[in-house]
Amino acid sequence: MKTETVKKRCDFNAYETAKAAAEIRKLCIRSLASIGSGHIGGSMSVSDILAVLYTDIMHIDPKRPDDESRDWLVMSKGHCGSALYATLAYKGYFKKEELLTLNKGGTKLPSHCDRLKTVGIDISTGSLGQGLSLAAGVAYGKILRGIGGRVYAILGDGELQEGQNWEAFQFIAHRNVNNLITIIDNNRRQLDGYTEDICNPFGLKNKFEAFGLIAEEVDGHDVTEIYNALKTAENAQKPVVLVCNTEKGHGCNFAEIRGFNHYMPVTEELAESAAAEIDRRLEENYGRSCR
């Protein structure tokens, strides 16, 4: 299996963003190790997207998490909360040590995102297929109230099998909700296997375009491509769906397997081995020679 999809880039702040992604992955894997298992596959595939959003794109202030005019994020694939918690801790919404309470009784960091428990979580998710409607509601609410800021919704490609998403896309296109940017973490796998084996999507980009949306496709592990696409989306006249082609488990050596990697045991040893490999790859792909 191809494991090196991060391309060498020397423009904008690719190194800093890739470094953020590496930190997010390490924090996430260590938090999963603290409870012994977790949703590693989808958390790894979405890490580069989160790094770009939170370090380069979103207008947010960890000290003012309730500011209505902030950019909102809806992690519709709510089972990847652990990746988002790692991102929020990296950004300073709460202390990194808090990540080690993941999924333990009484924690503020439950498996699936909960806006009532976690500072920085804008919308609770976990029942797949509901996040996009919520995101559309927040975005449309911003329009109705004349409050600025954008809404970013991250959906899994497997999640797109839920029909409610297509209700939401019809609404978003018809109402031209263009302060909402939808991002698909297109890792082409779902819990039980490959989407093309379980329910073939037959090309997502065409579907979105047929629904009246602007659809772009990028390498979801290339922070520069993600960044450029999201910056372009900011000025689009129609709502944008960004299909980020990713690999489930990407960046975590023991999860980069063709077998089941949706939810895996994570030991401290595995986590440290993965962390060392993440650092090595960062240096290899974005090292001094490149900078």
Partner: peptide, 19 residues
């Protein structure tokens, strides 16, 4: 339109924005 599931989610999101 005829999309109750989305409509309920939309309401929830709008209320998160104070409506």
């Amino acid at each position: 339109g005829i999309m109750e599931a989305h409509a309920v989610g939309l309401c929830a999101g709008m209320s998160a924005m104070g409506l």
